[in-house]
Design a protein around this nucleic acid. Structure first.
Lengths: 352, 352
DNA sequence: CCCAATGTTTCAAGTAGTTGAGCAGCTCAT
DNA sequence: ATGAGCTGCTCAACTACTTGAAACATTGGG
């Protein structure tokens, strides 16, 4: 038995005493065109030999590999959930997602380390002729020029969290930043806060969502008279979280509420507050964004906007599938905005 | 331009005025067999047309797709790190990992839901002719019988965290449970604890590691006179975490230390302790296992065994690659045991 | 001027399967 | 008797590319 390779259709056909075309047709389900005994025989033999369809060949012939490339690092629970949504929808359609990312996904700066590496990863996907791509902005921006090639070759591309401002050439899906930040702002204002800080992420070119989120928040706040916002952000490498948090909390007068553009930055605020002896929420209200897995377990539990990562993933996958089905193959790129929900927990309270 | 498909080798060959075989050879690097101008011309044309190698065809011809199937859910930071290790090693070897899992990876019972679904996922991988498989026990047990088929077809299989007790037919890689639990036990004993509880996971058929970890811990404790262990475990669905934790803490006499087989169970102990008004570590020492991402952020920070998930992933991937290279193609299956390190944090202290 | 040696390029047969067209052989109505 | 229509099956061309062997062209030596 040693070294036997996978059984081929030829083997099945020979063993069942039919032509390859007959075997092929029967195994693909065209049973009614053949005699009942022939069908039975072929199916039986195929089962015995352990034959299985070869999607490589199918892919070569039809130009459809039933594989979708996904460039998303499982960086935190948000992205893991996005991946879960993608997997569920694609699996149901007999498609296979292939996930790649650059470098070490746990260290943020790494996955922007070199567009070259990212391009290499994309190439590894395209070399295997994936039918479509789902990308996270980190990569999307750098490969903007390559999108044209993909679009021309009718490889659908869906980008998560990064609407192209210029001429949009790929579908995009993102959290509804306007409505979300409005909910955060109104929550804080209703609690009586008038001196609010906004703690943004690094806002690199890859983080268009962070810019949109901060700007949108500032915008909403400015529409309310008597309320002030001041914004901070991480440095380029995201390495000075606690320092920025301490700087925010050392302002005079100290803001009574902080909105952080993700739950990650909220952790820095918690740490800085603890080291400065400030109590949350008595001295300081904190609102995060994302509702990551650790948000509810913090002391106090973090008030945050719950995004819908699984839905984002599901809709991204569905969008790719629809484009492949030619559903609206010629309609121009769309942007889908997914809602979010304010989860009020113990980290926000009335300004005292 | 609309609808143009990916450029084929034929297109390149025609445009460069050479045969397909010439183009093929030049593009695969056999430049020296051809005239310098011809080489230049072919490479130039290929670049202009945007030609890229077609690994589908390569896979068909050589029987090697350079894809490795991975059946691991990104359930928590441990598994995400395992995946990261796998990705890094495989990417470096120009292999592509394809990750699949069953159902909704965030809800534990789900990914044991139906061996049928798991088999379907494996099939989706084998249909695409992956060169090897890396599996997590959850799936491995159910497909034990199918392993033979794979072994016979020389598809290397590496299993993580589940050594087959019977006749071992697949390579296996796991955390060194004996040495790890010994370190935990000695830590607690050195702190003077003599009444220790062990909080295990569900110990279903898929969780051989949990059984080994608990038994190993009990064993080490029993070698010390004057020290007692009693063990608990979650119910079949893992839904009664806090209840079990409260039961443990309501014992009379109450254990002064609890070892939980993963950090997840430690969360239940924290919650139960808070609701019973017990202070950690003054009233109760807690040791977890895994050093998941939230462990250090808990209040107090959790003492835990830091596993080396990235190394586990790396070695699993390397093992598959070595088997494919025929390194020790005929040597019998091995079991690799990876060490772990005790990280002492604030959740353990001297028994008072 | 012819043969050999070398350099450059092509032929053709694979890889594993799919699919439109077509061909036997049979029944049945005309 | 014969053509139509049917069932049951096969032929051959096609997918994109690789590769061992062979062919063509050029140059140098005898």
């Amino acid at each position: 038995m040693a070294g036997s390779t996978a059984p081929r259709l030829k083997d099945v056909a020979q063993a069942a005493n039919v032509s390859m075309s007959a075997a092929s047709r029967i195994l693909r389900g065209e049973c009614d065109r053949f005699g009942e005994d022939t069908c039975e025989r072929v199916l039986q033999v195929a089962r015995e030999l352990g034959w299985r369809r070869n999607l490589l060949v199918n892919g070569m012939q039809t130009g459809r590999t039933k594989m979708i490339g996904v460039m998303i690092p499982p960086y935190d629970s948000f992205w893991v959930d996005v991946l879960a949504g993608i997997h569920i929808v694609l699996a149901a359609a007999d498609y296979l997602p292939i996930t790649v990312w650059v470098g070490d996904c746990q260290e943020i700066p790494h996955f922007e380390k070199g567009d070259e590496q990212g391009l290499e990863q994309i190439s590894r996907l395209l070399d295997r002729r994936v039918d479509g791509l789902i990308l996270w902005p980190s990569f999307a921006v750098a490969y903007y020029s390559h999108f044209r090639e993909l679009v021309e070759q009718r490889v659908p591309v869906v980008v998560i969290d990064h609407e192209f401002s210029e001429d949009q050439i790929a579908d995009s899906i993102e959290t509804d930043e306007q409505r979300s930040t409005k909910a955060v702002a109104e929550h804080l204002i209703s609690l009586g806060h008038v001196n609010i800080a906004c703690f943004s992420s690094r806002e690199t070119a890859w983080q268009a969502w962070a810019v949109r989120r901060r700007e949108s928040f500032e915008q909403v706040i400015k529409e309310h008279t008597g309320v002030e916002v001041k914004s901070w952000r991480l440095n380029q490498w995201g390495s000075n979280g606690v320092e920025v948090a301490e700087e925010i909390l050392n302002q005079n007068p100290r803001p009574t509420a902080v909105f952080t553009v993700t739950d990650h930055e909220a952790l820095f605020i918690y740490e800085a507050a603890a080291s400065l002896g400030l109590r949350i929420p008595e001295d300081l209200s904190v609102v995060g964004f994302a509702d990551l897995d650790f948000a509810a377990a913090l002391q106090p539990p973090l008030t945050t906007m719950r995004q819908r990562p699984k839905e984002i993933g599901r809709r991204a996958a569905q969008l790719v599938l629809d484009r492949l089905d030619g559903e609206y193959s010629d309609s121009s790129p769309t942007t889908i905005r997914v809602g979010a929900e304010l989860i009020v927990r113990g980290s926000t309270t009335q300004r005292i």
